[in-house]
Simulated scan of single mutants.
Amino acid sequence: MAVLLVIPARFASTRYPGKPLVELTGASGDKKSLILRSWEAGMSVSGVDKVVIATDDDRIREASEAFGAEVVMTSDTCANGTERCAEALEALGGKYDIVVNLQGDAPLTPSWFVEDLIAGLRAHPTAEVATPVLRCDGRALNGFLADRRAGRVGGTTVVFGADKKALYFSKEVIPFTSKVFSDEDETPVFHHVGVYAYRPSALAAYPKWSAGPLEALEGLEQLRFLERERPVLCVEVEARGRQFWELNNPEDVLRLEGMMKDMGAN
């Protein structure tokens, strides 16, 4: 079962223009661009047949080819990473059974998150889309809540049913809880890790649907599947002591650099 891993990257981010080329300083003091760190994360995943960066921007293409990445140029009309993955799959001839979308703003994504995601989709042959979810400890939840109090959009949270199918994704913290958690506490909140695995049938259908009101309000591409009553399988992954965060806002640069320093990541 052939697996394609696509890293969609665009320069014209609404919240953080030029984000893929922002440099992050690792534990040793080495600076690497966000897109390079994301590509290195993708290359570390086992069981993947090909890793490509999909972009519509020549600056990102040139930077990516300079460090040895394979680049697929996609149109500037792609509304999100899922549409960009669909174009990349088509450009490559559509010869893959599973396509992974490793978003280019999550360089700290552990390889086992993606490996477990692929295994989860394979274990559910009727599922067309799957995504990892990570139970928040108190530190992560308190970070989400602090971001919202400060008016920042931090990570995305998700609630799902007993069958592990997503009920809703939100940039607000869901479900609501009034309990105060210490850093090491286990909480009822799940962080949605921004990685997806799709069957080709799901990618073929997605660009043909218009964005629904929930996707437009939240700015979350995965809600298009739910609004079309296409289930999204949630695959729970384990942190194994690893810190995880996406680069959503300029303020997150220092947060990610601090995490890399704590982990000794260069």
Rank of each mutant, 00 (worst) to 15 (best):
C136N: 12
L102Y: 00
R228Y: 09
A123D: 10
G26V: 08
S111D: 00
P17T: 07
G143C: 07
A123Q: 05
E70W: 10
V52Y: 03
V237Q: 04
P200K: 07
R61M: 14
Y16F: 15
R255D: 11
A204P: 00
A9T: 07
P20L: 08
G143H: 08
A41C: 09
A88Y: 13
V235M: 09
T157M: 11
D137Y: 10
T187L: 07
E215M: 13
S111R: 07
F176A: 12
R230L: 12
V3C: 06
V71W: 06
V180Q: 06
N142F: 06
R224G: 11
P17W: 05
A106F: 01
T74I: 15
V100Y: 00
N266F: 12
A12W: 08
K19A: 15
R240Y: 13
A12Y: 09
S46E: 02
L5F: 08
L24K: 10
Q243S: 15
Y196S: 05
R228V: 05
M260Q: 15
K171L: 03
P175R: 04
Y96I: 00
V72G: 01
A123Y: 02
A150N: 14
L121Y: 03
V253Y: 04
E70G: 08
D105E: 12
L217P: 03
A265G: 04
T82E: 01
A54I: 08
S210G: 14
P107C: 05
G26M: 07
L223Q: 11
K32H: 14
S44P: 02
I35R: 09
R139I: 04
L220H: 10
L226W: 09
A41R: 03
P213Y: 04
V100T: 00
S75G: 13
L21E: 09
L121G: 00
R152D: 11
P250H: 12
D185Q: 05
R230M: 15
Y168L: 14
E246C: 14
Q103C: 06
E246Y: 05
D163S: 11
A127T: 07
T109Q: 01
L214G: 02
A88C: 13
S201F: 04
A265P: 03
D58R: 13
T109H: 01
A91V: 06
T187M: 05
V193S: 02
M73Y: 06
G155M: 08
G154K: 07
V22R: 15
E227P: 06
E218F: 06
T187I: 05
E221V: 11
A146C: 10
A150R: 15
A166S: 12
G219Q: 13
E62D: 11
C234E: 07
L233N: 09
S170V: 06
I53P: 14
P207Y: 12
V72A: 01
G154E: 11
A27H: 11
P132H: 10
A91E: 12
P200C: 03
F160N: 12
G93M: 00
R61G: 07
E83I: 04
Q222T: 12
R149P: 03
R37A: 07
V129M: 00
F169A: 08
